[in-house]
Amino acid sequence: MAGIRIESLAKRYNAVSAVDGVTLDVRDGEFLVLLGPSGCGKTTTLRMIAGFVAPSEGCVRIGARDVTHEPPYRRNIGLVFQNYALFPHLTVEENVAFGLRRRRVGEAAIRTRVATALSRVKLDGFGGRYPRAMSGGQQQRVAIARAIVIEPDVLLLDEPLSNLDAQLRHDVRGELRRLQTELGITTIMVTHDQDEAMSVADRLAVMEKGQVRQVGTPSEIYRRPADRFVASFVGRANFYAGRAERGIFVTASGLRLPVADLAEGADTLMIRPEAVGLRPAGADGLAATVETATYLGAGWELELRLAGGERLSVVAPDAGEHWRQGQILTAHVAPTAGVGMRTGS
């Protein structure tokens, strides 16, 4: 087990930067997720850590070892791929034993370790099967067993759930998290799915255009996004242009909203739709008119128009009201609900 430190890692293809100076510290035993849209450089970063892509600049350390110039087969990493990448000509047992054989582990030890790994992923008794005789979820669990059985220093997961259907994705991701905690293995996972990222990560690193925009716990990222890109990538958000005035954010139309922890120089205010409270007309807050109201079962999705002409999207739990178009109400934005940010930061 070991932490991972990557410093000013960059990869350029001709003039194009796929990864542009990424520095990350992954603590021993931590589960870090690289989250970002396709083409943001997260997979290239992972492949540089694995050793399949040579960095143009920077270095990769696993524990105390500088592995920047080590080939993948000397890095002692466990790798799980989106398409499972099992060896189709080998049985499940032989697949899982592959890494142990390369390490010249004795046959008796191989048998026990393979059996332990398979039972960890709940595939006892599947050892004699061929991958093609298994479902996608089972194949991915074999791939996980194959990666952890070698007791790697780090576990790297490249979109491991993307090929699975929704229910299975939910199950396998829970299993991944449980295994990772049990084994205490330092893990980096790449994904473009924010729900998936939030649900498994100790910390997230949100990437865009080859750079890390923000690193933090899921709730830090969600509640205190560093910029507009991060805010909208991890969830829905309302944005208002304006300026900060001693704890009050003044929008372009003159709306004054008290905001806790408002940095001087903030020019954008972000409000999550579910952070807005709905109250009867005349109550303390912002007067608003309902433009559209959509009932979703668990709650309501409302598009409001504020007095100053701004729009405000709100998601509210179903508390028995029946919101209608044209209805007048009050939107309550608590001082802790808004987050000030500087555009372009």
């Binding site: 694995a50 050793g51 399949f52 080939p71 993948p72 087969y73 000397r74 890095r75 002692n76 990493i77 466990g78 790798l79 791929f81 398409n83 990448a85 099992l86 060896f87 189709p88 592959f98 890494g99 390369r102 390490r103 791939a143 194959r146 990666a147 070698i150 790297l156």
Partner: peptide, 18 residues
């Protein structure tokens, strides 16, 4: 043939020839 099977083998410690 799947390129990732080759990557998987290398990540598991197999040299290019193996």
């Amino acid at each position: 043939t799947e390129k990732s099977a080759v990557d998987a083998a290398q990540s598991l410690g197999a040299t290019p020839f193996t």
